[in-house]
Design a protein around this nucleic acid. Structure first.
Length: 321
DNA sequence: TGCCAGTCAATAGG
DNA sequence: CCTATTGACTGGCA
């Protein structure tokens, strides 16, 4: 009812709206802390959380697609975008952009990054600002390199604004030895994963006892097995969501241009919910499962078909209130 | 407690 | 450099 709400709606809704006011409230560009809880410039001081709570349904798939285009078109990396715009790390951004969950399956927290992306896309100056940040980072980096070359590799004095990001400070370490005191990071062997997947298919929710056994057989810590099951379940679930979001279709008007169409045949057809079926890893083995990709591609055709169909029929949007 | 969602962050490929 | 993958962690729930 409030005008604020109206503004939020229009902002989030149309990927092409232009904010009336050329705000330009230059918002720092320093501490990550300054960026994150941003009150969203140009929005009556609304916090993203508030906006997230009010925002109408958003097409996460369309947004990520657009973001990917803009980033690649402008040579902007996920790290920069993630740290500066979303407040997330590169890996998270990659994951988010590659497998966005449908809006209705997201929690409030999970919607936040998408609202930020939408806002970012709607802001005509966003790209330039990011490029500027990139430039500054590079400059700072060069400066550091230079100073460490010409002088003692110690401090650089605060010559430049403390801009570069956060966790980029893996420095003080080395003080002592114990190079291995840093968790070795478990890397499961292909056969171990195979075994776990087999166990999963037999029982997605293994009892503590079963987990214990598996851990023993595979020589893994039980926590590793537990984590593996949690992760695997959620990732499988997510794959299903993705198919759902695409099939569900919200039939956005306009939509951007076509999409590439792979020339892949559609043999598709898969059993029920199998999933990256364990083909033969044998021989030279195939480290990465790409069968999922294939399957997804196969789905694409039907999805596109449905999208076109949906685009025809009018959409009964009814957010209201 | 166990589950899940969202992330982090190390690391493997390019 | 950059991106994709993935084991582990965190906070919320019930």
């Amino acid at each position: 009812v409030s005008s604020a709400e109206e503004s939020v709606k229009s902002q989030l809704e149309d990927p092409c709206v232009q904010p009336a006011g050329p705000e330009s409230s230059e918002a720092s560009e320093s501490q990550p802390d300054t960026l994150l809880p941003l009150p969203v410039p140009g929005h009556a001081g609304l916090s993203i959380q508030e906006m997230v709570a009010m925002s109408a349904e958003v097409d996460t798939y369309a947004i990520t697609k657009r973001v990917k285009e803009v980033l690649t078109d402008n040579n902007l990396g996920q790290r920069l975008f993630g740290e500066r715009i979303l407040g997330l790390t590169q890996g998270s951004v990659s994951d988010l952009l590659a497998r966005p969950k449908p809006w209705h399956k997201l929690s409030l927290k999970g919607r936040e990054p998408f609202v930020r992306m939408q806002l970012w896309l709607n802001d005509p100056n966003s790209v330039d600002r990011l490029m500027e940040m990139k430039r500054l980072e590079k400059k700072a980096y060069m400066k550091r390199q230079h100073s460490s070359l010409s002088e003692s590799p110690s401090r650089e004095g605060g010559v430049c604004m403390g801009d570069y990001s956060r966790a980029v400070s893996p420095q003080p370490i080395v003080r002592d030895h114990q190079p291995q005191l840093k968790k070795p990071r478990v890397v499961l062997a292909p056969e171990e994963k195979e075994a776990l997947k087999r166990a999963y298919q037999q029982k997605p929710y293994p009892s503590p006892k079963t987990i214990e056994e598996l851990a023993n057989q595979l020589n893994l810590k039980t926590s590793t097995v537990i984590n593996w099951f949690h992760n695997y379940r959620s990732r499988i679930r997510r794959e299903l969501f993705i198919e759902e979001i695409q099939a569900a279709v919200g039939g956005k008007s306009g939509a951007d241009g076509e999409s590439s169409c792979d020339g892949a045949e559609s043999d598709s057809r898969a059993s029920g919910l199998e999933e990256p079926n364990p083909d033969e890893p044998a021989a030279s083995g195939n480290p990465r499962d790409s069968s999922l990709r294939r399957k997804k591609a196969a789905n694409l055709n039907s999805i596109i078909h449905r999208l076109e169909k949906a685009a025809n029929r009018d959409e009964p949007h009814e957010w209201e209130f």
